[in-house]
Write a protein that binds this DNA or RNA. Structure first.
Lengths: 236, 236
DNA sequence: CAGTGGTCTAGACCACGGT
DNA sequence: CCGTGGTCTAGACCACTGT
C-alpha cells in the first residue's frame, strides 16, 4: 500500500535534503567523514544509486568532497558558487520589457595590437576585424562594446552588414564555440566610452570581457562596458 | 570478452559528447526536436538511464530544453552560464601565494539606514552591527568591505573580537546559510573607499555586494570594494 | 589488497502535459 | 489519453586510492 506520498520512495531530493540538514545542524561537522553510500541507503531505505545522486549533487554544489576509497567528507570551508548567465544583450534588454536599439560605431579590418594577439593566442600582427558598437535600452545608452573578431575562424562575418545585425547576436546564433574565458572588472570611462555611453569621462564603468574559443582556435574577444549604475545580479 | 575500452560500455560522457557533436555540427539544429531517450539508447547501444544522464547534463548546461511529453529540443539561443566561485578573501589571497593581512576600521552597533533594512527585509530602524574592514594582500590594500550584520540572527557575533578575526572568515565557518543574493558592479571611490584602498578619490572600483539568508531571515549584507585593477575571472 | 565511489543495466512505475 | 522524461531499484562490474 503506497504511503500518502504519491511517488512512494525516498527520493534523491529527500536524501539530499536530509544530508543537507545534517551538515547544517553540524551532525556532520566540517571535515567529518560521513557514512558510506551503502550504509546511508540502508538507513534511508532506498537504493544506493539514490544516495549517490543526492551526494553527488551536494558535491557539485561544493558542500561535500568525495574520493574513492577515501569516502565522503564535509568540506571544511563551504566555498559557495554562483552561476551567472552570460547575457546576450539584445535578449537581456527585451526580457526586461525594454526596446533594444543598436548602433554600429566603427568597423575596420586591420592589424591587432600585440596585447589582443597574445590574448587570442595568435601570431603578432594578425589581421582582425574590429567592431565597436552601442546597445540601447529604450533609447538610452546601455552597453558599449569593443570587439575583435578572427576572420580566419569566422570568414562569414566579413559579409555581414554589422550596421543591421549586431555581432553579439549573430555570433551566438551562427558560431559554435567550445569554451570561453570571462573577466569582470571596473574601469574609468575614457573619451570613447564616455562619448558612447553619454556619461562623464572618468565615470566608473562595469566591464565584462570575454574570449571565446573553438578548440584552441580563438573566435572573438569582446569587452563590454555597461552604462554607469548597471549591476549584474544573481543568486547562490 | 571486453573490448579495448576497459569499462566496456558506451558511457554517459560518450553519449553527452556525441549529442554535443550533433548540436555543434547542426545535425540537430537550434530549435529542433531530437529523438527520444529510448531511440537514442537503442541507437547508441546503451541503457536509457545513460542517455538520460547525458541529456540532463546538457540541459543543465543550457544547451537543451526537456519537457515531458514535449520531448527534448535544442535551445534556440544557446545562452551560456558561467559559474563563479564566491571568494573568501583570506583564502583567495593565500591561494595566490600572497600573505593575507586584515585591519578592522570601525565596528559599531546602531540603527541601520532605511535602505539596508529594506534590503534585508527587516523593520525600519532595526539595530545592526556595522563593520568596516580592510583586507591586505602582501601588505597592499586589496579589499575594503562595509558590512551590516543582524545580531538577532547571529548573536554570537557580538562577542567576537573582530580586530583579530575577520567577519568574512568567521561567518563562513560558523553560520549556515541557505541562500544568497549577489550583485556585481562598479562605483567611483568615495572618500572612505579611497582612503582605505589608498587610491585616488573617484577611481573606478569593482564591487561585489552580497546578502545571505537562512530561510527568510537575513544574516548579513556586505559590499566589498576591490582595489583598482582587480578582475574577477572564470571560464565557461 | 580491499573499501569506496562511479557507472551501467534492465525493468518498472509515475508525473506531467500535449493532443 | 498516452507519449515522454523523471526517477527508483537491485544487482553488477570497475576504477581509484589509502593502507
Amino acid at each position: 500500500m503506497p504511503s500518502d506520498r504519491p511517488s512512494g520512495a525516498f527520493g534523491w531530493q529527500h536524501a539530499r535534503d536530509e544530508a543537507l540538514r545534517r551538515i547544517r545542524a553540524r551532525e556532520w561537522p566540517p571535515g567529518a567523514l560521513i557514512p558510506n553510500e551503502a550504509e546511508l541507503a540502508t538507513e534511508w531505505g532506498c537504493a544506493r544509486a539514490t544516495v549517490n545522486r543526492a551526494l553527488r549533487d551536494l558535491a557539485e554544489a561544493g558542500l561535500l568532497e568525495r574520493r574513492r576509497k577515501g569516502g565522503t567528507r564535509v568540506v571544511m570551508t563551504p566555498l559557495r558558487k554562483a552561476t551567472l548567465a552570460i547575457p546576450v544583450i539584445r535578449q537581456e534588454v527585451e526580457a526586461r520589457g525594454a526596446a533594444h536599439g543598436y548602433a554600429l560605431i566603427a568597423r575596420a579590418l586591420g592589424t591587432a595590437p600585440a596585447g589582443v594577439c597574445r590574448a587570442l593566442a595568435l601570431a603578432p600582427e594578425t589581421r582582425l576585424l574590429r567592431v565597436r558598437a552601442l546597445h540601447l535600452s529604450d533609447g538610452a545608452p546601455h552597453v558599449y562594446e569593443d570587439r575583435w573578431i578572427n576572420p580566419v575562424a569566422v570568414p562569414a562575418i566579413l559579409d555581414i552588414d554589422l550596421a543591421q545585425v549586431d555581432a553579439n547576436s549573430w555570433l551566438v546564433q551562427n558560431v559554435a564555440f567550445t569554451r570561453g574565458d570571462l573577466a569582470l572588472g571596473a574601469v574609468a570611462a575614457d573619451a570613447a566610452i564616455a562619448d558612447a555611453l553619454a556619461c562623464a569621462p572618468g565615470s566608473a564603468v562595469f566591464t565584462m570581457a570575454r574570449i571565446t574559443w573553438t578548440g584552441e582556435h580563438a573566435i572573438t574577444q569582446v569587452t563590454q562596458h555597461y552604462a554607469p549604475g548597471y549591476r549584474l545580479t544573481t543568486t547562490f
